[in-house]
């Protein structure tokens, strides 16, 4: 594997049309599903372009962004449509189990958030595991949204799945079965497509080659583990992204399939570099 010739395949985010209509500057605005004390989706405009940590100068929340319960991962396509996953936060009062495996679409034109597709699950999220969909990644080249679900898994049974959802045809297919996956990313490496996936149950990161139709080729390969790293040593990788230097950024969080929500956010970031001589990833930096 040579990471130099890579291209992360979600770099096609279009500008949502509703932003300008709502008086927001797209260069300085972003959607958030994790604002403190706010349930649902919020559009925020910050003082500085490209810096989500700068001072928020404007925020808005449309009615349809509020009534889907707590929301999680957001991926945006080339037209500016965003696909938003549900999550669970503190309790399940506002997130119905039957919608924990549903993808919502925030339409670029109308700015309304509506149910896009409901992915079937044999066991509904419940007392033993309130979670359904966890991670998402929009693959620009195939116009597929790749999502992971842990719906129905418990401490003894790992029945999670990874789906590819064709956002044009509104169809889906299962890529991986019986694996609880959290974060996802697709990379082009020397002309080949690789899906990187992280375990929701351990600190492991895997990869698998995909063909052009997104069918997996071969088996999952374990790339690395973050076990023992970071201040807690037992984080899971919740999000995988690659930067322009070919480095892999891992966003980590404490995750034990429960609804604990400590006031001090238990999250971290790790940066890995591919060593082409040793043919393995090595940790460059952790925060």
């Amino acid at each position: 594997m040579h990471i130099k010739l890579l291209a992360q395949l979600d770099q096609c985010k279009g500008v949502p049309q509703y932003m300008m209509r709502m008086g927001f500057n797209p260069q300085q605005s972003f959607l958030s599903s994790s604002e403190k004390f706010i349930m649902g989706l919020v559009l925020l405009q910050t003082e500085q372009s490209g810096n989500p940590n700068s001072r928020v100068v404007k925020r808005i929340q449309k009615e349809s962004w509020k009534n889907k319960g707590y929301l999680g991962a957001i991926s945006t396509d080339e037209k500016g449509n965003s696909y938003v996953l549900p999550t669970a936060n503190v309790n399940m009062l506002y997130n119905k189990p039957e919608f924990q495996n549903s993808i919502y679409k925030l339409d670029s034109e109308t700015g309304e958030l509506e149910l896009f597709i409901n992915l079937p699950t044999s066991i509904l999220p419940g007392a033993k595991n309130p979670f359904g969909l966890l991670g998402s990644f929009y693959d620009c080249s195939s116009r597929n949204l790749i999502v992971s679900s842990v719906a129905g898994s418990d401490e003894k049974n790992e029945i999670g799945k990874v789906y590819a959802v064709d956002v044009i045809r509104k169809t889906y297919k299962i890529l991986i079965e019986d694996k609880d996956i959290y974060g996802l990313a697709i990379q082009n490496i020397q002309g080949k497509k690789y899906l990187f996936l992280s375990s929701a149950r351990t600190g492991d990161l895997f990869s698998i080659e995909l063909d052009q139709q997104l069918n997996p080729k071969g088996k999952l390969k374990r790339e690395l583990s973050i076990q023992g790293l970071g201040p807690r040593g037992d984080d899971r990788i919740r999000k995988i992204r690659f930067n322009s230097n070919g480095q892999m950024q891992l966003f980590t969080a404490m995750f034990y399939f429960n609804l604990t929500a400590p006031s001090e956010v238990q999250k971290g970031t790790m940066l890995y570099q591919w060593n082409s001589v040793k043919k393995q990833w090595f940790l460059v930096k952790e925060e």
Binding site: V90, D154, Y256, N258, L259, T260
Partner: peptide, 19 residues
């Protein structure tokens, strides 16, 4: 309207917020 509804219970694979 500010507050929490906390469930208590098993530390993993549960809907408990306080473990």
């Amino acid at each position: 309207g500010f507050g929490y509804s906390d469930a208590i219970g098993c530390p993993e694979f549960s809907t408990a917020a306080v473990l």
